[in-house]
């Protein structure tokens, strides 16, 4: 006898939705609209006597090939799909920037503390190694646990990252005034490279400007993405829905 696994409609719909989501050019509300169309079609076909599996297959076919749908959506959502595709890169850049700034902040605060607490060089060395070790351990342990992963994915939100970067760079700016970080005095170096200082300064300004550009673009992209995914309910409908849910 043929051994067939039972057809699970919910699973199959989720799979179908996952393919649409992967394409990156459909907003959440687009997918909900299509899903409800599919469900309406399935209901209609089932009322005509087809079983769940048959209804699903035919309904999927009637909605059309995912490639065709995505191609059509891409024409009107071109802006959205560009933003959606670039968000992972922006997140990567933001995470890198925040890593650099946080490590600088770590350096400055420990220096400041050691200065205030009058810690000698050897103890300071041991303490800083232990602190770095604990920081790495706590990072990997948050990745290991499920809840930690959820927290991390929330933290890697563009909104949170940009705020984190701005706040920590402001604190860094404030604190670095109090800690005299050794600077190489260029005039004392023999054989100095011409215009090294000017180049350094220009490059520094360039770094700040590009940092600002990355921060503002990511904020704009984040808001755009949120706006596109939003579903507008009339107020009366929203309260009705919430009542239904509760």
């Amino acid at each position: 006898m043929e051994n067939r696994t039972e057809f699970n409609l919910e699973n199959n719909i989720q799979k179908w939705k996952a393919i649409l989501t992967k394409k990156n050019n459909l907003t959440k509300s687009n997918i909900i609209e299509l899903e409800n169309h599919l469900l309406d079609l399935i209901d209609d076909l089932e009322s005509k006597g087809l079983n769940e599996e048959e209804s699903f297959i035919i309904a999927k076919k009637r909605i059309g090939k995912t490639e065709d749908i995505c191609l059509e959506f891409d024409k009107i959502n071109s802006n959205f799909s560009f933003i959606n595709n670039s968000i992972p890169y922006i997140k990567g850049a933001l995470i890198y920037i925040s890593f650099i700034i946080l490590s600088k902040l770590f350096l400055v605060t420990t220096l400041l503390l050691s200065k205030k607490l009058n810690i000698d060089e050897v103890t300071f060395n041991i303490i800083s190694i232990i602190l770095l070790f604990f920081a790495s351990i706590s990072f990997f342990s948050t990745i290991y646990f499920k809840r930690g992963k959820r927290v991390l994915s929330k933290l890697s939100n563009a909104n949170v990252l940009v705020t984190l970067i701005i706040i920590s760079s402001l604190t860094l700016y404030r604190l670095s005034g109090e800690v005299p970080i050794p600077v190489i005095e260029i005039s004392t170096i023999e054989n100095q490279i011409a215009n090294f200082y000017t180049l350094e300064l220009n490059f520094g300004i360039y770094k700040i400007l590009s940092g600002l550009i990355i921060l503002s673009t990511s904020l704009v992209f984040f808001w755009q993405n949120k706006k596109e995914n939003k579903m507008n309910y009339p107020d009366a409908e929203r309260s009705r829905y919430q009542n239904n849910v509760s």
Partner: peptide
């Protein structure tokens, strides 16, 4: 006859042009 899913991009295009308006209902 056409892929039924392709009606939505058309509707959204009309909405962007301001010919139709939309709202979610339950």
């Amino acid at each position: 006859e056409f892929g039924e899913g392709t009606i939505y991009p058309v509707l959204h295009k009309l909405e962007k042009k301001g010919f139709i308006e939309s709202s979610w209902k339950i």
